[in-house]
Amino acid sequence: MAAASSFASAEATLIATAISELARNIVLYAKTGEIILKIVENANRHGIKIVAGDDGPGIADLEQAMQLGYSTSGSLGLGLPGVKRLMDEFEIVSAPGKGTRVTVLKWRT
């Protein structure tokens, strides 16, 4: 899809990696969830938007979760901050018991 929306191969790789990380988080913490990809366009550019949502346990301390090296699962703890660095825009909404929703966006250059 990234390739179809004419992203350069380097960017397509970044997007694919981010999706993989987001999917990994869902499987790891929430077991099930969904990832939605959308092509977005505005006046002078277009990009791809990825929404990864789940109804899992949620994240109590978002600030902590966004710190490099933080992980409750014993993984590398690079998931969320890593994804943030791969993409152009990053937004996370989460609360304990309310699930997690991560929205990221990559513009085509």
Binding site: S9, A10, A12, T13, L14, T17, E21, L68, L76, L78, P81, G82, V83, R85, L86
Partner: peptide, 14 residues
């Protein structure tokens, strides 16, 4: 390791 993959790995911090 492919060039694109290498770059995306370091961006991720790996």
């Amino acid at each position: 390791i492919q060039p694109e993959v290498a770059f995306s790995m370091v961006q991720l911090g790996l």
